[in-house]
């Protein structure tokens, strides 16, 4: 372990830990909850809810991974 008196001598161990990582759970869990979107109404541009809601989840996935990447960039 690094000596607390000489923090410059030994760099802090690298880590991927970040509270932001929890955001990644959202796009993993949302598509699994079929009762949320398994219906026809309301339609959007002719697409039943089942389809456009899942397309929307793609955007949720993009948004969360982008946020996590930007906020954990070193």
């Amino acid at each position: 372990m690094a000596d607390p008196e000489t923090p410059k001598a030994v760099p802090a161990p690298r880590s991927d830990r970040s509270p932001w990582n929890w955001l990644l759970l959202i796009p993993i869990v949302l598509p699994v909850l079929t009762p949320l979107f398994n219906r026809d109404d309301p339609r959007l541009w002719g697409f039943p809810a089942f389809y456009w809601i899942q397309f929307l989840f793609i955007l949720v996935g993009v948004a969360t991974t982008t946020i996590v990447y930007r906020s954990t960039r070193k």
Partner: peptide, 19 residues
């Protein structure tokens, strides 16, 4: 609809494998 699993499948991959 059962064939549409490809969409949730390819949503889940990226956050799942990010770390």
């Amino acid at each position: 609809a059962a064939g549409f699993f490809a969409v949730p499948y390819t949503i889940i991959i990226y956050p799942l494998f990010f770390l």
